[in-house]
């Protein structure tokens, strides 16, 4: 049995904090039993980080609009597993980005790499005119 929560936010950087806080609240629902406190803290924080990166990318690549386009977050809660998906109407992209060349002091290009590093699995699909990136991790 799983629970689904859906949240649609304006694609504006002001709402990144709302996306993060909602994510930590939802991820915290899975914690509390049979795990060490540090594992639980890491689980919640890794989702907070991954969603911040994904939401920021959605906002960044939305382009110029009179009213910001929306980003829809879907949280799928299973017993020990959480999947967070972000849907936007931006241009298609690839999640197979290379590791940042850290020795060249890059200012950008870390986001998708971080998401892949902190999540158990990350998938991308294109549906119609929408991008859907799904990020899963088991506690």
């Amino acid at each position: 049995m799983s629970s689904i929560i859906t949240l649609t936010l304006p694609g504006d950087p002001l709402f990144t904090e709302v996306a993060r806080q909602t994510t930590t609240s939802v991820a915290s629902l899975l914690t509390g039993e049979n795990h060490s406190a540090s594992d639980e803290t890491q689980f919640v924080h890794d989702f907070e980080l991954a969603v911040s990166e994904a939401f920021t990318n959605s906002v960044k690549y939305a382009g110029e609009h009179d009213t910001p386009p929306t980003v829809t977050l879907t949280f799928e809660l299973e017993k020990q597993r959480l999947t967070v998906s972000l849907l936007d109407a931006n241009s298609p992209f690839s999640i197979d980005t290379p590791a940042p060349d850290i020795e060249s002091y890059p200012e950008n290009g870390y986001g998708l790499w971080i998401i892949r590093r902190v999540m158990d699995s990350v998938t991308y699909r294109r549906e119609g005119n929408s991008n859907i990136i799904s990020m899963s991790k088991t506690l």
């Binding site: 980080l49 002091y105 870390y110 971080i114």
Partner: peptide, 21 residues
């Protein structure tokens, strides 16, 4: 309280601009 790659990029980018990165 929280730092993502935009924050990290700001620190790394600022270091790159230093005369001794």
């Amino acid at each position: 309280g929280f730092m993502d790659s935009s924050g990290l990029g700001a620190i790394v980018g600022a270091a790159r601009e230093k005369s001794d990165p």
